[in-house]
Simulated scan of single mutants.
Amino acid sequence: MTRSSLGWDPAAYLTFDDDRSRPFHDLLARVGATEPRRVVDLGCGPGHLTGLLAARWPDAEVDALDSSAEMVADARARGVPARQADVRDWSPGPSDDVVVCNAVLQWIPEHPELVVRWVAAMPEGGWFAMQVPGNFASPSHVLIRELLDEPPWRGRVQVRDEHAVAGTMEYADAVAGTGALVDAWETTYLHRLTGPDPVLTWITGTALRPVRKALDDTEWERFRAELAPRLARAYPLRADGSTWFPFRRIFLVARAGG
């Protein structure tokens, strides 16, 4: 399952943009490259963060790619020279000194092997930085899977489970095996969301994309209507009208060749 197969909606994805973008900033802060020749944004999405790479390394060539035609079109509309490509077909070139992969690899089951292969093939001293959500065992995702296991949804949609990503130490150990210097950590962000059904709105732009694609409009509205009260119970409204949404994320930054 990749972005290209899900019919991504860039506008929905950019809802809560400030909260969604913060991990990218935290990831980029740990990349120590000074004068990279080429910077690659693997899975650039709508391109709203690619400009940060160009701003930090203005002399570097920036390459941005994404498997979703909708995302690539949105990125190009922002002036990002993005191209459509599947990250599984990508390999680092001899001048790819910085590679950033933000909130993409969770869609690719074989991504741990891809990461090891990429880091091993990068030029010595190159920087690889990745971030993936680590919240697949949280109520927001468990409730989706539970509802999909009930009639009339059972067997109709496949979504990611808690095995969609590895553990922080698993990533670190695997990448360190290439001889790279590894910096790995995890963070649980506590997002303060507002608006009606805010957690449902958040996951509509990401986790629910396979569900939306599989259902017609009437079924989709029914599914949302059944999921909304379950999410509201798991993430209750506070007295001030806001909702706390804990979100765990896993980070890894590696310097190739040690």
Results as ranks from 00 to 15, higher is better:
Thr2Ala: 08
Arg3Gly: 14
Ser4Leu: 03
Ser4Asn: 08
Leu6Val: 07
Leu6Asn: 08
Ala12Arg: 08
Ala12Thr: 03
Phe16Trp: 07
Phe16Val: 09
Asp17Ser: 15
Asp18Trp: 04
Arg20Val: 12
Ser21Phe: 09
Pro23Cys: 11
Pro23Ala: 12
Leu27Phe: 12
Ala29Lys: 10
Gly32Val: 06
Gly32Lys: 09
Gly32Cys: 05
Ala33Asn: 06
Arg38Gln: 13
Gly47Trp: 03
Leu53Arg: 12
Ala55Val: 01
Trp57Cys: 08
Ala60Leu: 04
Glu61Lys: 02
Val62Asn: 09
Val62Asp: 11
Val62Ile: 15
Asp63Glu: 15
Ala64Lys: 06
Leu65Ser: 09
Asp66Phe: 01
Asp66Ile: 05
Asp66Tyr: 05
Asp66Met: 05
Asp66Ala: 06
Glu70Val: 04
Val72Glu: 03
Ala73Leu: 09
Ala73Tyr: 02
Ala77Thr: 03
Ala77Ser: 13
Val80Asp: 03
Ala82Trp: 00
Asp86Pro: 01
Arg88Trp: 05
Asp89Ile: 01
Ser91Lys: 06
Gly93Arg: 13
Ser95Phe: 13
Ser95Ile: 11
Val99Leu: 10
Val99Ser: 10
Asn102Thr: 03
Asn102Lys: 03
Gln106Leu: 00
Glu110Ser: 14
His111Asp: 10
Pro112Arg: 05
Glu113Phe: 01
Leu114Ser: 06
Arg117Pro: 03
Arg117Gln: 14
Val119Arg: 09
Val119Glu: 12
Ala120Lys: 08
Pro123Ser: 01
Glu124Gln: 14
Gly125Val: 04
Ser138Leu: 02
Pro139Cys: 01
Val142Tyr: 02
Arg145Ser: 04
Arg145Tyr: 07
Glu146Lys: 01
Asp149Phe: 04
Arg154Val: 15
Asp161Gly: 14
Gly167Leu: 07
Glu170Pro: 12
Tyr171Ser: 12
Asp173Thr: 15
Ala176Phe: 00
Ala176Arg: 14
Thr178Arg: 04
Gly179Pro: 10
Ala180Glu: 12
Val182Ile: 12
Val182Arg: 08
Arg192Glu: 11
Leu193Pro: 08
Pro198Tyr: 07
Pro198Ser: 10
Val199Thr: 11
Thr201Leu: 13
Ile203Ala: 06
Ile203Asn: 06
Arg209Tyr: 02
Pro210His: 08
Val211Phe: 08
Arg212Ala: 09
Arg212Val: 10
Ala214Ile: 11
Leu215Tyr: 11
Leu215Ser: 11
Leu215Gln: 11
Trp220Val: 11
Arg222Tyr: 13
Arg224Trp: 11
Ala225Thr: 15
Pro236Asn: 00
Gly241Ser: 08
Phe245Val: 09
Pro246Arg: 00
Phe247Ser: 00
Phe247Met: 00
Arg248Asp: 00
Arg255Ser: 03
Arg255His: 01
Ala256Gly: 10
Ala256Gln: 14
